[in-house]
Design a protein around this nucleic acid. Structure first.
Lengths: 356, 356
DNA sequence: CTGAAAGCGCTTACAG
DNA sequence: CTGAAAGCGCTTACAG
């Protein structure tokens, strides 16, 4: 059972053909019916499987796209990976996933490793490498970014339309009657974009932005930042730049006896798997990870359709659950919003403004 | 920038050495200091990176371990993958992940694909292939299983000590005073093991098992199965074979106005990321996915230490949160258990019985 | 339609 | 310590 695996030579001998003919049979080239039959029989008898590594060496294509992502645990990244696999599958290609845990050094190593394995392309999720370092590590391998964290480079990228998501959230809150809305912000590039979009959306709604506090995107950060926000008695709603911070906020509020949404409305961002399971179920901006992954994979395989527009924006949707309601000063909210009924949710796709 | 990548020949020419010497320098062989210096300089100038695919072809080792797992979305599988990567990293090796979405056909294809890429080993998570099919697909590539779903084969495997986890859950419930405990079961192999362990643990506690209903491990299944269980007025507690079924049960209970844990105690299984976020936070049996992945990776790299014990059992822990309390007939539970305070949790490591 | 030959980018005895 | 040569398992013009 542990005898050396059969090679194309073994098949050729067994079938009474040359290896060139076997190779053609394997790759759908022109081969007489008789030869094909003998070869297939030999393959079956020997249990032969082509060595794709050797094949890749001569064809110069590995059929592999390298994916470097922060981790596999965050459901958002996993969804993106799934989207990438969707389109690679259609092309008979496969993904090789390497995690970098948000460390630039690990990111560089991951890229070099992938390059040494001759990947045909690279999808980088949340890359923070500087353009020069990136190019040095990746050489001439084509790249597509998803939600790149570092400054733009020449590679095409797909990003969430963060501003549209923020606008939908703020409009939802403003329409419910909230006037003083706080923001828990994150420090990455998309956090900054969301923060700026928050200020802009508030202005559009004719409102002053409430307190803006950095929560670093994490539960703990959200919990710490919550203190500042909850001390402001005029704040009736908080828009968080991530679901993880929203959880921290929810805990902090509960500890202080502040009831959501009666005393405070909370909106998250991402719609992670568990957002619907929170107490109360969280109103949040859903990030379509799988679609973003699909778009990136297409970008890396086909290149951008229009090199002049290297950023492809994907539209998020607002998912309205039970963590938002009218502020107390407006009287009790409708009964349907008082119940924490996870089954009830409403999805709002924000209007995407036409590209400038 | 898109000029062909430099090869070992280019480096040799640039450094005035032979490719054999360059190869030795690259692999830490004996090379004069002068030569090594010239070679390193040449590598830097050219931006050379070794082609690991070509290297693998001659060494016969790819440095890759193939991992086939149901999906990347389930946090448990992601943790297992992380554990596998932990130990591969220590060995300078890497994982190639392929998902099969629980379809045997996809599993077979995944294995063949991985074999064609010359993986040095295979870790199969939840494999359901028959031993013969498995061997046919994998050839002579070493295999280690994690929580294998199909019947045992000759490959070493790591499994959760399901029975120990079930026992801890049942003892916890029995100690709280519950007498009639129902079980939501799953149909996979580990579901069956948990079901049998449930019956055994109830007997040990001197109790008749309550109703046992199949919920297929899913939220929907749990919700459907819950109906049967909730119709039994004597049932005061339910032990679910998965957190996902527990969520379904929680929803069904809420819809009927049954309060957890006041009217009903609920225990889950797995401790998925969001179990602590449920209403109320879920008492559950934590499956140490990362450790299980680590153990499997060691198994596939080193082989089993003792071929006579091909099943390595990993101990789970019971995480006590707010979804369990004394049954109502025992009077109101302690106040600390009435509050849904996610911060409060108690971890109980069940005693692992010595191997027979 | 078929086969001999060159070559993909490396490593590894084997001589020197 | 170093280099020429063979070979890993394939594909692909090039002749026939």
């Amino acid at each position: 059972m542990t005898r050396p695996r059969p090679t194309i030579h073994d098949v050729a001998r067994e079938a009474g053909a040359s290896i060139a003919t076997v190779s053609r049979a394997l790759n759908g080239g022109v081969v007489s019916a008789a030869a094909r039959e003998r070869i297939e029989a030999a393959i079956g008898r020997l249990g032969y499987r082509r060595n794709d590594v050797a094949r890749g060496l001569v064809t110069g294509r590995s059929g592999l796209v390298g994916v470097v992502l922060p981790d596999l645990i965050g459901p958002l990244y996993a969804h993106m990976a799934r989207g990438i696999e969707d389109v690679l599958d259609e092309h008979g290609m496969h993904a090789m996933l390497v995690t970098d845990h948000l460390e630039p050094d690990a990111e560089r190593r991951a890229i070099e490793l992938l390059r040494a394995r001759q990947v045909d392309g690279l999808v980088l999720i949340g890359s923070r490498l500087q353009p020069a370092d990136l190019r040095a590590a990746a050489g001439s391998v084509p790249i597509a970014h998803v939600q790149r964290d570092g400054p733009d480079d020449e590679a095409p990228q797909v990003r969430l339309d963060d501003a549209a998501g923020v606008r939908a959230a703020v409009e939802h809150l403003a329409a419910a009657g909230h006037r003083r809305i706080a923001h828990l912000a994150g420090t990455r590039r998309d956090g900054i974009e969301r923060r700026e979009a928050f200020v802009a959306a508030m202005a559009e709604a004719g409102l002053e932005p409430g307190p803006i506090v950095d929560g670093g995107f994490t539960e703990e950060g959200g919990e710490a930042a919550a203190a500042v926000v909850l001390d402001d008695p005029d704040v009736t709603a908080v828009f968080c730049a991530s679901d993880r911070m929203a959880v921290g906020l929810l805990h902090a509020a509960q500890r202080r006896g502040i009831t959501v949404p009666d005393d405070l409305s909370v909106v998250g961002f991402d719609d992670l798997t568990w957002a619907r399971y929170l107490c109360p179920p969280l109103t949040t901006v859903r990030q379509p990870g799988r679609e973003m992954g699909r778009a990136a994979a297409r970008l890396v395989l086909d290149g951008p359709f229009d090199a002049a527009v290297p950023v492809l924006r994907i539209a998020p949707t607002l998912v309205v659950r039970a963590s938002t309601a009218a502020p107390r000063s407006h009287g009790p909210a409708a009964p349907s919003q008082r119940r924490h009924e996870p089954a009830t949710e409403e999805v709002i796709a924000p209007e995407i403004p036409p590209p400038p």
